[in-house]
Nucleic acid binder design. Structure first.
Lengths: 223, 223
DNA sequence: GACAAGTGGAGTTACCTTCTCCGTTTATCC
DNA sequence: GGATAAACGGAGAAGGTAACTCCACTTGTC
């Protein structure tokens, strides 16, 4: 009697296309400008009217939810994957780098993780899943003698916020600058070291002394 | 003929009192809430009407200027004083701690240093004075073998922004938490060390493991 | 006690964001 | 190819915030 189309007929073909355009545009706009971005901006980017956006997604919150459901989960998963690494320090570094990379490249994601108005409860559940995973990473790295003994799980969350909010200030000018300060922080966390701290994507060239001097000074507009 | 009262007669006594009240209130309000605070809030704190605030200071910008002229200079001066320290590393640490303490305790000052809308040009001149002073500090600390060789002046400005923006997130819950992350950063910057990095005001007790765990977790609202 | 100086705070202006409404366009089905 | 309901666009309503003004009233001063 009732097919799978319980809720009346399916979307018209053009409506489906527009829905995709809206999601893609929203991803772009929120990544670039954070959750403050207007749905008018999303509509513009998508090349549709605001009305169309609001017909597909009843409000801004729903759209944000649809977009970031996965991205946030993904970060929680990273912490678990990091535990697979043979070397516990490498696992920790890898986790921080991966998590930060996502947050620094996506201001909307950062807003959620840091807890801007729109987010809050959205993070609660993730925190609960992520916290134990990080605790494991820390415990192992401390047992292996890599990580300072006085570090606790919440420190990592704080350090992540710290670096991603830094990146918010610098990313217009130099989107990779945060990596430099992550290495400095890591050097402050490590006890013994087999080899110097090097990020997977540490671009020796672009992080070279002279380039950095230019980038940072450009950022600060120091003459 | 014309006395010193070139610009007509002096302020009435009650007006002078109110001017002082306004300045004091503005200092309190901007320190607590940053430069976003309304002049209505300032008026409320001062116990006067908004109209009174606007008669004394033609616009918000002028009031901010009157308040922060000195505070910003002071930070520039700190860098010079730090050069007086016998030990070059201690000088650097002292400078960072003092500068950050001011920024973290005063959100308005931070807004100016970090470059929120209202500030911008206000900082330009200070940067020019502060940059050479920091360069001297760095050069000496590197010559003495304390400071990593790849660090440049702008790094300090970036690290300062990084930590003070962290403190913006945490200061409601735990106004001293930033100190912990400053020590971590310092440990990431140091090469050799005569003694462990300890801040002048490092409160052993309040920064103890258990207290930190509570503070940080409370900040993050992790169950 | 006259009166300019000073005051308070409701109100004006300007702007911004979220979301709605409706006249017009377009896909779909016969 | 024409009828029809779905979808569209975007002006603008609704609701908010912040900077600043204006004027009837109060107060210090000479």
């Amino acid at each position: 009697m009732n097919k799978t189309a319980m809720k009346c007929r399916p979307l018209r073909a053009d409506a489906v296309r527009n829905r995709e355009k809206i999601l893609a545009a929203a991803a772009t706009v929120f990544a670039r400008r954070g959750l403050d971005a207007t749905l008018d901006e999303v509509a513009l980017e998508a090349g549709v009217g605001v009305g169309t956006v609001y017909r597909r997604f009843p409000d801004k919150d729903t759209l944000i939810g649809a977009l970031f459901e996965n991205a946030v989960d993904e970060i929680a998963t990273l912490a678990l994957s990091a535990y697979e690494a043979e070397n516990s320090w490498d696992g920790l570094v890898w986790f921080l780098e991966e998590a930060l990379q996502r947050q620094c490249a996506n201001r909307g994601l950062r807003d959620i993780v840091v807890g801007t108005p729109y987010a809050r409860e959205r993070m609660e559940s993730v925190k609960c899943r992520i916290a134990p995973a990080i605790a494991l990473l820390i415990e192992r790295a401390q047992r292996d003698g890599y990580l300072r003994g006085d570090v606790v799980g919440a420190d990592f969350a704080v350090l992540e916020m710290m670096i991603s909010s830094l990146s918010c200030m610098t990313d217009k000018v130099s989107p990779d600058l945060w990596r430099r300060y992550l290495t400095i922080v890591l050097d402050g966390l490590v006890v013994k070291r087999d080899k110097p701290t090097v990020l997977a994507q540490d671009l020796d060239e672009s992080m070279a002394d002279e380039t950095l001097r230019m980038k940072t000074q450009h950022f600060l507009r120091v003459p």
